[in-house]
Design a protein around this nucleic acid. Structure first.
Length: 570
DNA sequence: AATCCTTTGAAGCAT
DNA sequence: ATGCTTCAAAGGATT
């Protein structure tokens, strides 16, 4: 069973209410451990710093040459750096910083965040680091400063927060310049006060969402209270998922990443209402807003989208309409999963073709346990919720037709005759062997419940993980019509655990579900996926990608048993 | 350059 | 209510 992010099950920290902190004790233990480690910091200081500097210099000798002379607060700065280094080291050790969605984790270990001020009253470097890393948009100096972690400007003398960027900086943790005009060093307490001190360790930690609110602590219509996703980071590709109207980047789990005061800070300054000031999908830094695909999106103060053409141009033509920015749909659970896991799969499979990767991810998705999937459903739910809060007037309908017309639009083409017409490439049957092995049905004894009402089971933070019967989860394994069974099992019966076999669909037992008709396309791949591109090791059942593949051989060439479907198709 | 492919899930639309 | 379609991400492949 593949594990998420190295696998603890709570890595995302986003299925907060349900299981994210099932290992909270572990987290606390690690935090405590880090506190203890602080005592030994002097012992590890030199090594960590050396490591850091070596990496830094090796990556950028030029900046090393430019390295400014030590400043009075350099020692504290170095300490922050060490904290950061240690945090990253632990991350790399695989135990702590597991989720790229949750970049705040490492910095929870910064001990002096409990007392984030220096004796001179200035915000301590590590606290600044914490803030910086947690909300990179808020107060980062220019790019040059980003490169040079030892900014010559002492943090307490400037409202620029020095960026402690370690060479081991998690690649998924962007450092983004951002105007600091709203961030005054004179008011740091407001940023830190909401930190929730761990009752055991006394270490501040990111408020658990359940501590912030059941979901997003928004009163209806209180857009100003949106926990604005300033740190919205995208795990693998380094791009935000979708826009925040003002800030640019958002954390996937803003409620996790942003504390209340930051929320209010943001809310007062970066509410969606100011979007009209950034009509080109760029936030104040000029960073293009990822979800605002095309330029010149305009959003009314009420949050409703208002294409500029509507307000200025009486008669926008189609081209202009095509150029209209559109706010993308929030990612669903699977998309979130894919986003997180894609790079891993690509690395494991040496595959690059997304279609193949997606097939693998689809199977892996099914191989996830309910709890693991539930995390993503919960994340997706929050995504939608946040999205709706950020864009109250947005509707998925707005994006209809944004893409060029697809051939699937031709409903009339979906005749059996068209199968052959469309599929000029050889018919390839991708076997469902993996599903035979570790499908949720087989591994869990029952189908996943429908995600239709995930919140019902997930809403209560105190509620234990829902039982298999209480949460509806996707019936994905059986959601698709039988797209392959009409065709002979003929080609490329790969047993690769990392194959691009579309087992998900081929293994479907044709039980009707809510999405049964989703794919109107024929069951065949119009273009065979590059199985040959699979790495030999991945073809092996011993591949870590598919540890259960040892059992797969029996499944080959077997039609998917209906018994897999343990849930009635009601 | 644009579109396809491929996955699942959410949402919209038509019936 | 049901079923179908579109879109969300991704990037190589194809047109």
């Amino acid at each position: 069973m593949p594990q998420l992010n190295g696998g603890g099950g709570d890595e995302l920290g986003a299925n907060d209410e349900m299981i994210s902190f099932k290992d909270e004790g572990e987290q606390e233990e690690k935090i405590s451990e880090n506190v203890s480690a602080e005592r030994d910091l002097d012992d590890v200081k030199s090594s960590l710093v050396n490591e850091s500097e070596n990496n830094s210099s090796s990556s950028d000798s030029e900046q090393t040459e430019r390295r400014p002379q030590p400043r009075p607060d350099l020692e504290s700065y170095e300490k922050a750096r060490e904290y950061f280094t240690e945090a990253l080291r632990r991350q790399q050790d695989g135990g702590f910083f597991k989720s790229p969605h949750y970049p705040g984790y490492p910095f929870l270990m910064i001990p002096d965040l409990a007392n984030p001020y220096l004796s001179n009253g200035a915000l301590s470097p590590s606290a600044r680091t914490y803030l910086q890393m947690k909300w990179p948009l808020l107060d980062v100096p220019g790019t040059a400063a980003l490169k040079d972690s030892r900014s010559p400007t002492p943090g307490h003398l400037s409202n620029k927060v020095p960026v402690v960027q370690h060479a081991h900086m998690h690649p998924l943790t962007p450092l983004i310049t951002y105007s600091n005009e709203h961030f005054s060093p004179g008011t740091p307490p407001a940023h830190l006060s909401p930190e929730i001190l761990d009752p055991k360790t006394g270490i501040p930690r990111t408020p658990h969402p359940s501590e912030l609110s059941p979901y997003y602590p928004l009163s209806p219509g209180a857009m100003g209270q949106i926990p604005h996703p300033l740190g919205w980071l995208v795990p693998q590709q380094g791009q935000p998922m979708y826009p925040i109207t003002a800030g640019g980047f958002r954390h996937p789990y803003p409620a996790l990443a942003m504390n209340a005061s930051m929320s209010s800070l943001v809310s007062s300054r970066f509410s969606p209402h100011i979007v009209p000031h950034h009509p080109h999908g760029l936030h104040q830094t000029g960073i293009p807003h990822p979800a605002i695909v095309s330029p010149a999106i305009k959003q009314e103060p009420n949050g409703e989208l208002s294409p500029a053409s509507n307000t200025k141009s009486p008669g926008p033509n189609k081209k202009e309409e095509d150029k209209k920015p559109h706010i993308k749909k929030p990612l669903n659970a699977f998309m979130l999963y894919m986003k997180e896991m894609r790079a891993k799969v690509v690395a494991e499979c040496t595959l690059k073709e997304s279609a193949a990767i997606n097939q693998i991810l689809g199977r892996r998705w099914h191989s996830l346990s309910r709890e693991e999937q539930a995390k993503y459903y919960e994340l997706a739910r929050k995504e939608r919720q946040l999205h709706s809060q950020l864009y109250p007037g947005w509707s998925a309908r707005d994006n209809y037709g944004k893409r060029k017309k697809r051939k699937r639009d031709n409903k009339t083409d979906s005749t059996p005759e068209d199968f052959s017409a469309r599929n000029k490439k050889p018919c390839v049957q991708y076997l469902p062997q993996e599903k035979m092995i570790d499908s949720p049905a087989s591994s869990h004894g029952s189908m996943l419940d429908s995600p239709a009402t995930p919140s019902a089971a997930l809403a209560s933070p105190a509620a234990p993980a829902p039982t298999h019967s209480e949460q509806a989860q996707p019936l994905s394994l059986t959601t698709k019509p039988d797209r392959h069974h009409h065709f002979p099992l003929l080609s490329k019966p790969s047993s690769s655990s990392c194959s691009s076999s579309s087992s998900t669909s081929s293994s479907s037992s044709s039980l009707p579900t809510s999405s049964s008709g989703r794919q109107s396309t024929p069951p065949l791949l119009s273009r065979p996926l590059p199985l040959t591109s699979l790495h030999a090791s991945l073809m092996s059942p011993h591949s870590p990608f598919h540890p259960a593949a040892l059992h797969s051989h029996h499944a080959l060439f077997q039609s998917q048993p209906l018994s897999l479907v343990t849930k009635s198709a009601d």
